[in-house]
Structures are given as C-alpha cells and as structure tokens.
Simulated scan of single mutants.
Amino acid sequence: MSSERWQAEVDSRLARLELQADEAELAYEGLSVRPSAAGSDETDYANLDDWVNGYFCATFSRPLGGEFRWCSQWREHREAVVRLEALWCSWRALRRDPALGMATWLHQFLDPQITMLMAPRGTFAHCSITKHESFTA
C-alpha cells in the first residue's frame, strides 16, 4: 500500500471516529438521567495522559508480547494518540448513559480500537516491552 493511500485510509478512519465521538457527545448532552455512583466510574480525567494511565492501562491490561503489543512511549505514535483520544472522548460521553452507554462503548469503540492498537501487526508492532520504535511508511 502506498504511503498516500495509507494516509488517506488513516484520514478517512479518523474522520469516522471523530464523527462517532461527536454523535456520542450529542447523545450524552440529550440525556436527562444520570447514572448513580454505583456501577459507574465517576472519575473525571483531566487529560488524555491521565485517562490512558489511570483508566485504560489499569482496566484493559494484557500479558504483553506475542499476541499483544503496547508501547510505554505511546505518545510518540501519532496513530495511537488519535485512537486513544477517540476512545477517551467517546468514553466520556457514553459512560454517563446508565442503560447501554458502557456496553456500546466496549463493543463499538473499545474492541475495534484495542485490536488495532495491540495486534502483532498493529500500531505498536515494532515495539516491545523493552524498546520503542516508531514506524514511518
């Protein structure tokens, strides 16, 4: 795949993710019912780094190596930042829906993104537990 075609695909996916996050935020603003403290994470994370470190990594940890990849220097991967920010924005909106918010977020947002981030050929494919390597096409 040429770098221009790859960049167009990334741009197209980013636009779709941004649209989904905007739609989720609008849906959240229209909710009149708020979840009780029980069964919901009431922590508000000030920024993406706090959310990734305080929620994402703590909640969705995997045994690293082989099938699952992660890079502690995820900020150095532009694709990772885009994907994690889309997850954070959609999580902030959907977690407040007491009925289907988190189920929707897990299925429609987290599952596809975590696969793209952590797969052997995904965002962190060239990184390991002990090394960081940026991939540029």
Rank of each mutant, 00 (worst) to 15 (best):
Ser40Phe: 10
His77Asp: 09
Ser36Asn: 10
Glu67Tyr: 07
Cys71Gln: 01
Val81Asn: 05
Ala46Met: 06
Gln108Met: 11
Tyr45Asn: 01
Val82Lys: 07
Thr136Tyr: 05
Leu31Gly: 01
Leu31Ala: 04
Leu17Cys: 02
Leu110Gly: 00
Arg92Ala: 02
Ala46His: 08
Arg78Glu: 14
Ala38Phe: 09
Ser128Arg: 01
Phe135Thr: 09
Trp91Arg: 03
Pro112Tyr: 04
Glu4Pro: 01
Thr136Val: 11
Ser12Val: 02
Ala86Met: 03
Glu29Asp: 13
Trp105Ser: 01
Tyr55Asp: 00
Glu85Leu: 07
Val10Arg: 15
Ala46Trp: 03
Ile129Asn: 05
His126Asn: 10
Asp11His: 07
Thr123Gly: 01
Gln7Val: 08
Tyr28His: 14
Pro112His: 05
Ala46Gln: 13
Arg96Asn: 09
Arg78Pro: 11
His126Thr: 14
Pro112Arg: 03
Ser36Ala: 14
Ala103Arg: 13
Asp44Cys: 10
Glu133Ser: 08
Leu94Lys: 06
Ala99Ser: 08
Phe109Asp: 06
Pro98Gly: 04
Thr115Lys: 08
Thr130Gln: 13
Ala103Phe: 04
Glu67Ile: 08
Glu25Asp: 07
Leu110Asn: 07
Trp6Asn: 12
Ser40Val: 15
Gln113Gly: 00
Gly65Leu: 05
Cys71Thr: 02
Val33Arg: 15
Ile129Leu: 15
Asp97Glu: 09
Glu67Phe: 09
Cys57Gly: 00
